[in-house]
Amino acid sequence: MVISSTTGFTLKENIKLKDKKRINYIFNNGSKKIQKVSIVFYVDAQRFRFLISFKRKLFNAVKRNSLKRRIKEFIRLNQYCLKKIDCTILIIRLPSSSSQLFRELGFLLNR
Rank of each mutant, 00 (worst) to 15 (best):
V62H: 13
N28T: 13
G30L: 11
S31Q: 14
K33P: 12
F48A: 09
N14V: 01
I71Q: 13
K72W: 12
E73V: 12
R64H: 08
K57W: 06
R56Y: 05
K68I: 07
F48I: 12
S31M: 15
V40L: 05
R64W: 10
K72D: 07
F50Q: 00
S31P: 11
N14L: 02
K55T: 04
R49T: 06
Y25G: 02
I34Y: 15
V62D: 09
K72I: 04
D19N: 12
F48P: 02
Q46L: 09
Y25A: 10
A45L: 06
N24Y: 13
Q46Y: 13
V43Y: 05
L51I: 02
K20Y: 08
S66C: 13
K18S: 04
L17F: 00
I34H: 15
L58Y: 09
N60T: 14
F54N: 01
K63F: 11
D19S: 11
F41G: 00
R70Y: 15
F27N: 06
Y42V: 00
K20D: 14
A45R: 07
S66Q: 14
V62A: 08
K55E: 11
Q46V: 15
K57H: 02
A45I: 04
Q35M: 11
L58R: 08
D44A: 12
F50R: 00
F27I: 11
L67F: 12
K20C: 10
L51W: 00
I71F: 15
K21R: 11
K57C: 06
N28D: 12
K72Q: 10
K16E: 00
L51V: 05
